[in-house]
Design a protein around this nucleic acid. Sequence first.
RNA 1: GGUGGGGUGGCAGAGUGGUCGAAUGCGCCAGACUUGAAAUCUGGUAUGCCCUUUGGGGCAUCGUGAGUUCGAAUCUCACCCCCACCGCCA
Length: 460
Amino acid sequence: MIDIKAFREDPDRFVRGAAEKQMSVDFDRLSTLDEQRRAVLIELEQKRAEQNRLGKESGPRIGKLKGQLKSASEGDRAELLKALVDLEATPVRLKSEIAALEQVLAEIEPTWYAILLTVPQPPAADVPRGKGSDDNIEVRRWNPAGFDNGVPFAQSRGFAPKTHQELVRSLGLVDFERGVKMSGTRHYVLTGMGMRLHQAILRYALDFMADQRGFQPIGVPVIVREECMIGTGFFPAGREQAYHLEESKRGSNHDLFLTGTGEVGLMGLHADEIIPIDALPLKYVTLSTCFRREAGAAGKDTAGLYRIHQFDKVEQVVVCKADDAQSRAWHATMLESVEMILQSLDLPYRLLQCCTGDLGVKNEDMIDVECWMPGRGDGGAYGETHSASRLGDYQCRRLNLRYKDEQGRMTHAYALNNTVVASPRILIPLLEMHQNADGSVTIPVPLRCHMGGRERIEAR
RNA sequence: GGUGGGGUGGCAGAGUGGUCGAAUGCGCCAGACUUGAAAUCUGGUAUGCCCUUUGGGGCAUCGUGAGUUCGAAUCUCACCCCCACCGCCA
């Protein structure tokens, strides 16, 4: 959520930001409602102030009169009653005036807030302008020694690459048919060494972040309330992407949602909290199952392990002070972790600076990591495996996650998040890059300790 | 799932219709005393929003929401959450 005060001071900044993100928001309506809301609020508060004042002045007298009325003789009753009515006249009038104003406010505020929730975080100033993913800019690329993704795979390795789909079939790593039988399209079953490789890379990534990078490992719920989804900025925009457990239809009082990333749990952890300043930055890593409906992606990447409804992901988040330089430094550090992992696995990759048009509602700066997938497309292609976002205070504002700065001012923290590794998608480059001419796959050294010491996966 | 108890400031805990944003204690901050510390004493110590000539002023908040009332931490209803015991269970 954006700061409404910042919007009042400089609405253009947000109008421009939304335009750059190719998003449409009814800013005129927001401005109008905001002004109306404030006008009503001023009037309402004046009335309430008067009501409070009268409550202190004449309230006790009213109480006294009412007491007297009970034990009053018939003769005194009329007089007491009149005094009471006089005394109550103003408060009674105020009461109805206040109720009317509250009614007006109740009509304005929900719409005001709903629009406010849809205003995107403006892109950082140095994010390149662009319409969509085609305008993203490559920052750098890396290839392991002895491999060049610029030349055909067959030329550098001496044999034509199989696709990951062919490999998982021949090596017995994934059973797509039974996955689809049980759960429908975009579902799969990991079998044998496929399951072990999946677990190995997740465990390796989690351990790496905890042991080498000082991140605290945390296990979080993947079934959350709507507030968590709104607070983390996934709702309302991404409502269609989330599986919805309609528990209310079964008599429960609230529905639940399956999270599409561990970010929801990690950030939701400290919602409505004031973090001690010494505790910052928070550096968390989690491993969680992620659920995505992939609504609107019909027909896209339908085969294989690329786009699926359920996967597991090691995710890192950082919550730091509201400081642009710190945010940028952590962004670099988080990306460095990813690069260290990919390099240790000998996986070619490149970093893309996402342009304004490719950003989501909540991020102001995003770098995607794409791994080289020799079996993708025609002759290999990069495919997105990671995404590293800087969110400014957008998410913490929604989550009401704050800290007291050095001057004692309450401040919304800045948040960042980045994939560490998402599997099985990462198995695509892993299998395709490490395949051998005989159809076997060499297991990268760091994963072997989680694979019973094996060096290769071979057809049985 | 059943029964019972309970949600008040950073924490503990009082408060059953007005003088209550809220006693008291602890903690924390500042000052005094002290060579320094401890102890003691004095003062301060929530959050959000609105207005503001930036001094300050106002409104709201006692789990959440609605209601009764001239007036609600206090009464009524619904919901959320926590605790205890019983049942069931990976």
